[in-house]
């Protein structure tokens, strides 16, 4: 089922399967997609072509997901060879709620954003974190954390 869906999405978007799967997950919340795509279009002068826009969107999403995975590995002291998936839950990786707070704080610093309390508590997977980060970065919804 997941594999078939991934194949279908991949075919339509012209993206690598991994990125396509991430995109499919993200598409559940249309407002986030709309915000991200609008910003990218305005920023890079893309016009109506569907495929290039989706490709850029997927690439950005994959980059964010990759960075999130890297930070999660560091925070939880997982080996570099640990295999994470976008839908991995922090609790599956051995994180308790204090660890999750630390992960969100580390992500704030990495991406120069501020995550509000309620948003922070709704993050349970790597994809959740990446979606919120892209939304905040694109929307300018956060302010940089206070300088150290």
């Amino acid at each position: 089922m997941a594999a078939a869906l991934s194949a279908v999405v991949s075919a339509k978007l012209g993206c690598p399967p991994a990125a396509a799967l991430g995109s499919w997950k993200g598409s559940r919340i249309s407002s986030r997609n709309l915000v991200s795509m609008k910003t990218m279009t305005a920023r890079r002068g893309l016009v109506s072509l569907r495929s290039p826009r989706f490709r850029v969107f997927c690439a950005a999403k994959a980059e964010t997901v990759g960075k999130v995975m890297q930070i999660v590995k560091q925070q939880l002291a997982l080996g570099e060879e640990a295999k994470l998936a976008p839908e991995s839950q922090f609790t599956e990786l051995g994180a308790d709620s204090l660890d999750t707070v630390e992960i969100v704080m580390a992500l704030e610093e990495e991406f120069g954003i501020t995550v509000e309390e309620d948003n922070a508590q709704s993050i349970t997977t790597i994809q959740d974190a990446a979606d919120l980060i892209d939304k905040l970065v694109a929307g300018g919804g956060g302010k940089p954390p206070a300088a150290a």
């Binding site: 707070v101 630390e102 704080m105 954390p145």
Partner: peptide, 12 residues
């Protein structure tokens, strides 16, 4: 958790 976040923010 909010208190913990507060400490981490202040530590920065």
């Amino acid at each position: 958790l909010a208190l913990y976040r507060g400490f981490l923010r202040t530590a920065r």
